[in-house]
Simulated scan of single mutants.
Amino acid sequence: MSTDYQQAREALGVRLRELRLTAPAGRLTGVALARLLGWPQPKVSKLENGRQTATPEDLRAWADGTGQPDAYDELLARLRGFESHIRSWRRQLASGHKPVQDTHLAAHADASTFRGWEPAMVFGILQTPDYARSILTRYAELQQSPRDTEEAVRSRMKRQEALYDPGKHFHLILWEAALRALVCPPSVLAAQLDRLSGAIGLDTVELGIIPLSASLKIPPATAFWIYDDSRVIVETWHSELWIEDEPSVATHLRTWRTLRESAVYGNDAHKVISAARRALNGS
């Protein structure tokens, strides 16, 4: 979980504690408030210490239970402020790409079902070291961030161990354009396409490809990941968005399912990859 996100959650917890301690009818203990709300006592502690994300219903109950219902709007605004959290690349990359890769490694460890859409390049979880090296080098140049490319590549390769974990499942969709983008030397892309073909045989991976000739219901826009159908991660040029509010997650799920309708799988996906490989060789 992002440091900024956690800090915002802890700040909300501090505010919740203030409301409990300043209840108009008299200071409430955590045990007393939990009893009043019909909650297990650990829930009060977790919310106040930023170890659990409150729901709007939790905040309403807390405001009413502490005798300060007018505080609900403020609490809800705080929650909405970090449910869709912006993490700027400038701040994230201050120490290089490895810390970012490590953050995603931790997020992967906590989830079991992944849905991804990528229109421009091969997913990091399926990249070869040379392809990843090219991508990370170019992004470091763009963001003018410290060069720790080899450490970042190793962290990205470490994440790929999840592909062989039977408890995890990856439902991935690529646009064919991602197979043809020369964001690396042709020889590196050739090896990457071979790697991609091999991924189709993994029992933890469902890889769909949308051909350039496919009919689309929506434009093939911004890439995103969905973790356990409850968290969305979107990368933009200036920041990374971590989104957890239910309506926004639901929108991304609908988007992913709509894109999936245009994708091909199995042997048909192999044919699209093979065509890109032949085009690369000038055949």
Rank of each mutant, 00 (worst) to 15 (best):
R80N: 15
L79D: 12
I86Y: 13
Q52N: 06
G81Y: 02
A63G: 05
G26A: 02
R27L: 06
T53D: 08
N49P: 01
A94D: 10
K98P: 07
D73Q: 12
T53H: 11
R78S: 03
E48L: 08
S95P: 09
E18V: 05
N49R: 09
T103S: 12
A94H: 11
G96S: 00
R51T: 11
L19R: 00
R60S: 01
E74H: 08
L76V: 15
G26V: 04
T103D: 14
P24Y: 01
R87L: 14
A106K: 14
D70I: 00
T53Y: 09
L19V: 01
S88H: 11
R91C: 03
T66Q: 06
G67W: 04
G81M: 07
P42R: 05
G96E: 08
F82Q: 07
A77E: 14
A25V: 04
Q92E: 14
G26T: 00
A77F: 10
G65L: 01
A77T: 13
R78H: 07
E83P: 07
A94R: 12
N49G: 05
S112F: 12
F82L: 06
A106P: 10
G67P: 06
S84D: 13
S84G: 04
Q101D: 02
G50N: 04
A54Q: 03
A61I: 03
D70C: 03
P40S: 13
Q52D: 07
G96M: 06
F82R: 04
A61K: 07
L79V: 07
H104C: 08
A77W: 06
P56N: 13
Q52V: 10
A77D: 13
T113I: 13
I86D: 14
F82V: 08
L37Q: 07
T53V: 15
A77Y: 10
V44G: 01
H85G: 12
A54V: 07
S95D: 12
S45T: 02
E57N: 09
E57K: 13
G50M: 04
G26C: 05
S45C: 00
E57V: 10
G50W: 03
R51C: 02
A54T: 10
T66E: 08
V100D: 09
A32L: 02
H85C: 14
L75I: 00
R91T: 07
A94T: 11
T55E: 11
R20W: 02
P56V: 15
G50D: 03
I86R: 15
P56M: 15
V44Q: 00
R51F: 03
G96C: 06
K43Q: 09
P69G: 01
T29E: 00
R17S: 04
D102M: 11
S95M: 06
E74Q: 06
S112I: 12
A23K: 06
A32F: 03
